[in-house]
Simulated scan of single mutants.
Amino acid sequence: MKPWIRRSLIGLAGATIALGGLTACGHRMHHGGWGADATPEQAAQWRGKVVERIAGKLDLNAEQKAKLTVLGDKLHAQRLAVRGATDPRAEVQSLIAGRQFDRAKAQALVQQKADAVKSGSPEVIAALGDFYDSLDAAQQQKVRDFIERRRGWGRG
């Protein structure tokens, strides 16, 4: 198999997994502001609750809390940009709707998602860096301990 074909297939498989994950995540938020069907007010209220919870656990001051709020807003904007304006499940289903897998549409979809990540990442990284750098040594250690206990951000 030619290397470019193998890379394309691996990329497509990765994109399919990522899109499946995004599709699954889109259905989690029906109870509190994280789903695609949440209003901007519900999403903001949910992010506010998360900020309050983190602020309480890390004993954040007002400046740190403001930086955490900015980080939450940037992450939310990045998530919306990656998700796009259409339903991720419908996008994936449209790839297999015909007799053959729509390779061109899949590649365009992957490129769209990659472009969204690439364009929004600098802002997210800057906001995360600003927040983390504003923490004192004890607060930073709490964050590291939390991540170690959870083995990453997304596991429960």
Rank of each mutant, 00 (worst) to 15 (best):
M1F: 14
K2L: 15
K2F: 08
R6H: 09
R6L: 13
I10K: 10
G11F: 04
L12V: 13
A13F: 03
T16N: 07
I17F: 07
L19R: 02
G20N: 09
L22I: 13
A24T: 07
A24C: 02
A24L: 06
A24E: 03
H27E: 14
G33N: 04
W34D: 12
A36Q: 14
A36S: 14
D37V: 07
A38M: 06
E41N: 07
A43S: 13
Q45F: 01
R47N: 00
K49Q: 13
K49A: 09
K49F: 06
E52T: 10
G56S: 08
G56L: 07
K57W: 04
L60H: 05
A62G: 06
E63C: 07
K65I: 06
K67C: 07
L71V: 11
G72C: 07
K74F: 01
L75Y: 04
A77Q: 14
R79I: 03
L80F: 04
V82C: 01
G84Q: 02
G84A: 03
A85W: 13
A85C: 10
T86P: 00
D87H: 09
D87M: 04
P88W: 00
E91N: 03
A97H: 12
G98P: 05
G98C: 13
Q100I: 06
A106L: 02
Q107A: 09
A108R: 14
Q112C: 04
D115H: 04
D115V: 01
S119I: 08
V124Y: 05
V124I: 12
V124A: 08
A126F: 01
A127M: 07
L128N: 04
L128G: 05
L128P: 00
D130T: 05
D130N: 12
Y132D: 01
Y132G: 02
D133R: 12
D133F: 06
L135D: 04
D136L: 08
D136T: 03
A137C: 03
A138T: 15
A138K: 11
Q140S: 05
K142F: 00
K142N: 11
R144L: 10
D145E: 13
I147R: 08
R149D: 09
R150A: 14
R151T: 01
R151W: 11
G152E: 03
W153E: 11
